[in-house]
């Protein structure tokens, strides 16, 4: 969980292809901890926002059924080198994380 968000951006023409990994356990609440034999509480990213130069371009709501260490890909139009792509998430416990990357 100490891992930070990872983002890769490739620019083709004026479209930025953005791939994101968000380290997070994404617990469904249905899994039993083999050590304690008790259900692991639901713990998942439920809200993700992507930005282009600070302006939101994508607003996503997720359930616990998004895979562990969630992957997200989106494509931003009108992008150019130096522009900044940001991703921020918040989970159902109110924890959050964010990353902003400049397109090279």
């Amino acid at each position: 969980m100490a891992d930070t968000i990872k983002m890769r951006i490739t620019l083709e023409g004026d479209t930025a292809f953005v791939k994101v990994l968000m380290p997070h356990p994404m617990e469904t609440g249905l899994r039993t901890d083999p050590k304690t034999n008790e259900l692991v509480p639901k713990h998942f990213i439920q809200h993700v926002v992507a930005t282009h130069n600070g302006r939101p371009v994508l607003d996503a709501q997720w359930s616990q059924a998004v895979s562990k260490n969630p992957f997200l890909e989106f494509r931003v139009r009108g992008a150019k080198p130096g522009d900044k792509i940001g991703v921020a998430w918040e989970d159902n416990r109110g924890e959050n994380n964010a990353l902003e990357v400049a397109i090279k």
């Binding site: 994404m26 249905l30 992507a50 282009h52 371009v57 607003d59 059924a65 997200l72 890909e73 989106f74």
Partner: peptide, 26 residues
């Protein structure tokens, strides 16, 4: 057939292509 079928909602705002990729549990 997931216990709760809705996995994700993506609201697209100006400046994004109508495309998303995501990995899910089934």
């Amino acid at each position: 057939k997931n216990p709760q079928p809705l996995v994700a909602q993506f609201d697209l705002l100006p400046g994004i292509d109508p495309f998303v990729a995501v990995r899910i549990k089934m």
